[in-house]
Nucleic acid binder design. Structure first.
Lengths: 355, 355
DNA sequence: CTGTTAGCGCGTTCAT
DNA sequence: ATGAACGCGCTAACAG
């Protein structure tokens, strides 16, 4: 018997067929489990022979060849712009958990340049977590020509693809108003880029809530940072070291709020007592930490997102002939936001307020 | 003129060919830029017609079909177990930077279960950042049958694939010995799982260095944590709050060391004066922060890793017929470790030592 | 009931 | 600038 496993060569279905002494069709039936239900049956001894041959050769079906026939890649792509953000990790976790039982693999794209990638790479569904203005045209085009998309954006209109909106504005307003019950000197921690992007609405909620409460906005109370955890920490430290120290901090992301808590504690401030800190996003980390983070955000966001994405991945043939079961058209999915009052910014009554 | 872009259908090269009034071959040549250099020439007017047709239809070549012919996917897979670890982000960053000019897309696999995924998915090269004992068989098999692998592991022998070793032991020993110049009461911060995994050697270096210095190991000086930043922070706080407080902390990762610095500062300790803290890994974050983090680690690790991976991705046809240019066989790539003395654990002389 | 033949679906590439 | 073969796995239609 000649040596069966020639090193370095990727075995094809034909090699397996030859070694097992059967046709490639039989091999395909055996290895993809499609025997018994509808197609031709394969006897147990034959199936055994095939499996053995495949095992000996180290055969693995070629995903590309399979995809070309079936039109499905069993892959979803997650385009995530800020991988270091816990938000992204939550997306990944939820999608992974939901896709495993379906035999679907989530592939993460850590680059902001999803337009170029999606131009050539195929997946059963794609999640995109940010759309720059210059990418909107490309988005429409992709959706129009066979790419199944789920987009997270507050502004883009749904047009042949799903849009998940988690409108931050009102929720953020709630966060700031929560602080306003016990504070007048409220600082804001926000990424420097937030002016242009969707993060802008989170900052705007702060500005407007203050204005509405008749409080003048102070430039030195706005801590801009570079988007990193360390940057948020530094910005928080600066703001909390001001002579006229703010008694509350509104951070436009939970992870910035976490950094702010660390910074406050380093400065010897008791969070929830000397200074209140609230975040935005309702991420799990905030709930688990000590003191637990007060925050605003959507409920059950990640699981619902994952479910939608996988429904699209499985229910929609990428090749196009749309399933005409009228229900479940792509559209806008809106998430309501709630206020989660926890330890880092508790309820303040007249007796406990800091002004 | 009939409407050219039928919604939802993914256009094929044949549709483009038809619309442009040329053959599919011509379309292929035009769109993959393979005209002029070697293949047949295509006249400028024709090329223009083709490009226009492709544009009108929103045509994008089918990656799967292309892969089946060329044997290349223009993709590398990065299997990263701890996406939240800055180490992973550094890998991603380096690989992305190196792959962009080559037209190669890095896809990240955030799951520890790379064995199942690599069984069906194809890439020009795969980086794996951790090999569990039960995965070693599968690893060998993959490598033997056409998967181009680059593995990060301290123990696995290179056998048909590259292994990147960044032997921690001696380097960690250097770190602890650096502390021993000025301290006797040295704590250790290490993930709870480190006992079994490769992280174990980092802890062992601590135990052995202490023993060699004739210092008894104290159980209460070993701060175990759950691998998260918050966990490290808590463990550091506990250790640094002991009545017989350690004067130095050896953390088995840089990010744990960063948490330890935060914890120390929160406790009112001056890092680099009251307490010295050293990390392991030489990540960029440590260098940038204040006080800058003393650490040990390899030099130029991520860039070299990225270069190797992409060399493998481009130089090695996935279909197997190995390029026999004898040089550059897959093998072990060893990284020397250096000690980086910075502010968080400065040099201690007899005059400044803390015992 | 068991297994095979033949041809599909893509983009690429070699002869013509 | 093109026709047709090619690479791969899948599967409808067919043969024993």
């Amino acid at each position: 018997m000649a040596k069966a496993s020639t090193t370095g060569v990727r075995p094809t279905i034909r090699m397996v067929a030859e070694l097992a002494g059967v046709s490639t069709a039989t091999v395909s039936y055996v290895l993809s489990g499609r025997r018994g239900d509808a197609g031709p049956g394969v006897s147990d001894p034959t199936a055994e022979k095939v499996k053995e041959a495949a095992e000996r050769l180290g055969y693995r079906p070629n995903q590309a060849a399979r995809a070309i026939r079936t039109g499905r890649t069993n892959t979803v792509i997650l385009s995530l712009t800020m991988l270091s953000d816990p938000w992204s990790l939550s997306v990944i976790e939820a999608v992974q958990k939901a896709s495993a039982p379906l035999g679907i693999t989530p592939m993460i794209l850590g680059d902001a340049d999803w337009v170029k990638v999606l131009g050539t790479h195929n997946a059963d569904a794609v999640f995109v977590d940010a759309v720059r203005p210059d990418q909107r045209q490309a988005l429409l085009k992709l959706a129009k020509h066979g790419t199944t998309l789920v987009v997270f954006d507050e502004k883009v209109p749904a047009d042949g693809f799903d849009v998940i909106r988690s409108i931050a504005g009102p929720g953020c307003r709630m966060a700031v108003e929560h602080l306003l019950h016990g504070h007048r000197r409220i600082a804001c921690l926000t990424p420097a880029t937030a002016a242009g992007t969707s993060g802008g609405s989170r900052y705007r909620a702060y500005a407007e809530a203050l204005k509405h409460a008749g409080i003048a906005e102070r430039e030195d109370y706005v801590g801009l940072f570079d988007g990193t955890s360390a940057g948020a920490y530094a910005a928080a430290t600066r703001v909390l070291s001001l002579p006229d120290r703010p008694t509350a901090v509104y951070a436009t992301t939970d992870f910035a709020a976490v950094s702010a808590i660390n910074a406050a504690q380093r400065l010897g401030l008791a969070v929830g007592t000397d200074v209140d800190i609230i975040g935005v996003g309702n991420t799990v980390e905030g709930e688990r930490m000590s003191p637990s983070l007060s925050t605003v955000g959507p409920v059950d966001f990640f699981d619902k997102l994952a479910r939608l994405l996988l429904r699209r991945a499985t229910g929609h043939t990428d090749t196009g002939h749309a399933d005409t079961s009228a229900a479940d058209e792509p559209g806008v999915l809106d998430f309501p936001w709630h206020l989660f009052v926890r330890e880092s910014a508790p309820h303040r009554s007249a007796a406990t307020r800091l002004y």
